[in-house]
Simulated scan of single mutants.
Amino acid sequence: MRPLQISAETAQKLSKELHLPIEQIMHMPQHILLAKLAELQKKKQEKGSD
């Protein structure tokens, strides 16, 4: 599987938000990354509505 086609800056931001190493972000399947981002967004929305 080839690495995701994202910039280094994007990988760093995702790594910080998801609390995962950059290497893991770069080699994560795209559908799993999208699911994690959706989960993160949901948590932020729930936290904001409290």
Rank of each mutant, 00 (worst) to 15 (best):
M1F: 04
M1T: 11
M1K: 12
M1L: 13
R2Q: 06
R2Y: 07
R2S: 02
R2P: 04
R2V: 04
P3L: 05
P3G: 09
P3D: 07
P3M: 01
L4C: 03
L4D: 02
L4Q: 11
L4Y: 05
Q5W: 11
Q5R: 14
Q5L: 13
Q5G: 12
I6V: 11
I6A: 07
I6E: 10
I6T: 05
S7K: 11
S7E: 00
A8Y: 02
A8M: 09
E9N: 04
E9W: 03
E9K: 10
T10S: 06
T10R: 13
A11W: 06
A11Y: 02
Q12T: 13
Q12E: 06
Q12I: 14
Q12H: 04
Q12N: 03
K13Q: 14
K13I: 12
K13Y: 07
K13H: 13
K13R: 14
K13G: 06
L14Q: 09
S15P: 05
S15C: 08
S15F: 01
K16S: 11
E17K: 14
L18K: 00
L18M: 07
H19G: 07
H19F: 11
H19V: 05
H19I: 11
H19A: 08
L20N: 03
L20C: 01
L20M: 12
L20D: 04
P21H: 06
I22G: 00
E23A: 08
E23H: 10
E23S: 15
E23V: 03
E23F: 01
Q24C: 07
I25C: 03
I25M: 01
M26W: 10
M26A: 12
H27K: 05
H27Q: 09
H27A: 05
M28Q: 09
M28T: 08
P29K: 04
Q30G: 03
Q30Y: 08
Q30V: 04
Q30K: 09
H31T: 03
H31Q: 05
H31W: 01
I32S: 14
L33K: 10
L34W: 00
A35M: 03
K36M: 07
K36V: 09
L37H: 11
A38D: 06
A38Y: 04
E39V: 01
E39Q: 12
L40G: 09
L40H: 14
L40D: 09
Q41Y: 15
Q41M: 11
K42W: 14
K43N: 13
K43A: 10
K43S: 11
K44S: 10
K44M: 11
K44A: 14
K44T: 15
Q45I: 15
E46D: 00
E46V: 02
E46T: 06
K47V: 03
K47I: 04
K47S: 05
K47D: 07
G48M: 15
S49A: 15
S49G: 03
S49R: 15
D50H: 13
D50T: 06
D50F: 12
